[in-house]
């Protein structure tokens, strides 16, 4: 029984890893050789594939993706923590109304307003920048909800009161007392937002028209159509888009898993 269960788990894990493995081995082949057999073992064409990828504006695209994700994480974290602090730690008249508002916003899928959003961005003259794919993360209902719960659970009211008695200003309390206390929550949310904005495909697809501002998913999905279909080079580009994320995740998997499960098991 025990051996059978290990064998089953091993099989599942192999299936989970196989596509990644194929992606990596394929990036070391000469495209035309890919079709001569199973690319199970690495070949020796990686250097040339890398050269092909960097001959395009891949570096620019990579920078675009990094800019979007970093800006998205920064603005989402700040705004979410701020409203989280307000709802979790203050008693004020509109508190329950705000809480209700936040819960409702979580239920509305972004796609419903997609057309309106694209038209709005064009009207505001941001159609030809990276801003539309960043601004969508400013008010992120899940982030607000997540931070509210986290601040409620970790920041004690006494600590805030004593900081107030010491004459600390409210922004000072927020930046110097609250934020350091909720660092684990912030890092989980940061990882999630980074991941989701990095992988996002639909919004960039409809809102970015200029190749100069392509993000990685958009760039790679268009590679096959624009250039000679160099599959191996595409796989190389994919590896470079995916592998850094995998490494970050593996290094931080404990915190990450804890964060992902926190919301669901409670609710």
């Amino acid at each position: 029984m025990r051996r059978l269960s290990y064998a089953f788990l091993a099989l599942i894990s192999v299936v989970s890893l196989l596509p990644f493995y194929l992606m990596m081995t394929m990036s070391t082949y000469y495209t035309e050789d890919l079709f001569k057999g199973l690319p199970l073992w690495p070949s020796d064409f990686l250097r040339e594939n890398l050269a092909t990828v960097f001959r395009s504006n891949f570096a620019q695209v990579y920078l675009n993706s990094l800019t979007v994700s970093v800006a998205a994480v920064a603005s989402c974290l700040l705004i979410s923590a701020m409203i989280g602090y307000a709802i979790a730690k203050f008693r004020f008249r509109l508190r329950s109304a705000l809480h209700f508002f936040m819960m409702i916003t979580m239920m509305v899928p972004t796609q419903v307003g997609l057309i309106g959003y694209v038209i709005e961005m064009k009207a505001l003259g941001m159609g030809n920048t990276l801003l539309p794919v960043i601004l969508i993360w400013t008010a992120f209902p899940f982030g607000a909800f997540f931070m509210t719960q986290f601040i409620k659970d970790t920041v004690s009211q006494e600590l805030l009161e004593s900081a107030r008695l010491d004459g600390c200003s409210e922004p000072g309390i927020f930046f110097r007392v609250v934020l350091p206390l909720v660092k684990p929550g912030l890092s989980t949310l940061a990882m999630l937002v980074f991941l989701w904005s990095w992988n996002s495909y639909l919004l960039p697809l409809v809102v970015i028209n200029n190749q100069k501002w392509y993000t990685l998913p958009l760039f790679i999905s268009n590679l096959g159509i624009v250039h000679r279909t160099d599959y191996a080079a595409m796989m190389t580009a994919l590896c470079m888009a995916v592998v850094p994320l995998l490494v970050i995740f593996i290094l931080a998997s404990k915190t990450f898993i804890k964060g992902i499960t926190a919301g669901s098991v409670k609710g």
Binding site: S13, M23, W198, N199, Y201, L216, V242, F249
Partner: peptide
């Protein structure tokens, strides 16, 4: 190991 597919970009 089994969570890796979840964080991979849909393009890949």
């Amino acid at each position: 190991v089994n969570f890796l597919p979840y964080i991979t970009t849909p393009v890949a």
